[in-house]
Design a protein around this nucleic acid. Sequence first.
DNA 1: AATCTTCGCAACCGCATCGAT
DNA 2: GATCGATGCGGTTGCGAAGAT
Length: 299
Amino acid sequence: MGRQPCCDKLGVKKGPWTAEEDKKLINFILTNGHCCWRAVPKLAGLRRCGKSCRLRWTNYLRPDLKRGLLSEAEEQLVIDLHARLGNRWSKIAARLPGRTDNEIKNHWNTHIKKKLLKMGIDPVTHEPLDKPQETPSEHDPEVSLSSSQADPMSGSPANTHQPNNTHVMDEYNSSSSSPSASSAENCCAGADEPMVLLEYICSGGLSGDDQSFLMDSLWVDESQAAGPTALDSSQKENPSGQEVAGLFPSWPEESESFSWLLGGQDCGVHDFGGFDCLGGDGTTNILDGLDLGMIDKIF
DNA sequence: AATCTTCGCAACCGCATCGAT
DNA sequence: GATCGATGCGGTTGCGAAGAT
């Protein structure tokens, strides 16, 4: 028996979301959370499939999303993580609070890839382009980012390249005027990483924004250290959601970023708090502080 | 000013994975 | 252990905007 499609294709709308649809989805999730994505469109009065609703929410409407271009530090981190994890965008995104896998994937394909190519670096292998290509099996595991420091998830067969990217990243660092520690240090997934990043931050190598971003990352890392799967599970659809509040301890930019909420299509509910998955009391508590009518006015 | 090309991003598609039964 | 449904993930596409001719 074939799998049932996630939605019956008939009567299901596709294409760009309208402000009206966004409003319905936001209102529904704010008040009910998302119990089951398949049921969301029906309950929210949307002619979309659940998958589309989930995507729209996670990639665009989620309150904890950052907007705008990736900062230098974020970009650097993406490159480091990509060198280690390959195209596992969701894993990479899990290390960048407020960024989505889709956003990072797009940014990689449109900006970073070109940047690396321009620098003569193969964006796939993170090796210099002029260097004779080795097959992945030829990489010396001792040389390529110590496997003992590799991400716990790296056992996946999808992670087919583990390049030695230290020199590459040094090159990137110097060219981008970011005096970062070598990526071999920076990209370690182990307990050392926060320390290395911390040293870098303390060295004064970052702007204020970048510093705060990296400090956020450290919080994430620490939560990971507490439990290897904690971050992953909490950054995905998060039924309990309590950890998410911890990961995003506050949105200091809340007040100023509210303006982009007013921008119509190009905005989300950045400032409504991490209620997505709080469910139950958590949801209502936060929602109590919100004027849902305001959403109606906004749209 | 009109047309063509390139770029960037939101959204879709299909497969993979996970959990429940 | 097998099956099924729900969700997650990564690759790809489509389209509007911006830039070039």
